[in-house]
Amino acid sequence: MKEIIIQTKKLTKTFTDGDKQTTVLKSIDMEILAGEFVAIMGRSGAGKSTLLYQISLLDRPTSGEIVIDGVDVHDLSHEERTTFRLNKLGYVFQDYALLPDLTAVENVALPLLMQGMDKKHAYKRSMEVLDQVGLEGKYDSIPAKLSGGQQQRVSIARALAHDPAILFADEPTANLDIESSLLVLKIFKEIHAKGQTIVMVTHEAEYARTADRVIEMKDGVIDGK
């Protein structure tokens, strides 16, 4: 039986704007198993991205528990959360979120260097992952010289290079044309087949079907599993 890699209990997120309070996540109980490919779907404002940000440690919930890979992340300090993200999690953002001053290989190698890997091995590993996502020969290109699809593939390579326990993807195809979107999903399927846990937020039902399981969000609660 597969172990639970993400578990939330009564996860709540409330935004405060002056006197006005808006609860975006309402007591979410959720479990994701290791090696699962889960798509979180929902309309705009349903709370899907907010849920992703909480379980990927990019934000802190107002209340509730999150356990990731056996670690209750609630009590982690700011620096411990950073280190946890570095070692356990990988991110693919909607707008690629590459660093403009770094080449493709440098963007991918940065988390590895931060982990303490020496430059030679970090670059070698980065080139291997860039090859995996079909970017041979683009190692030294800066993001501005790459197409949107290519930039998203660099972003995927960066997220995968350090073998994260979980890959989080926030609307990874939203800024891409169909061809590039399908290529990204194909890469996701391939890495999932090798056992990678993936949590992807999307509003495209067709793309969500690529996943093992779809979590439907509606008005801050899980609508169906």
């Binding site: 570095l86 070692n87 940065l110």
Partner: peptide
């Protein structure tokens, strides 16, 4: 600021 956020997001320490 956005890129600083990304750096922190992917695990680069504030000190670095």
């Amino acid at each position: 600021r956005k890129f600083i956020g990304i750096l922190k997001g992917i695990g680069i320490t504030s000190k670095s």
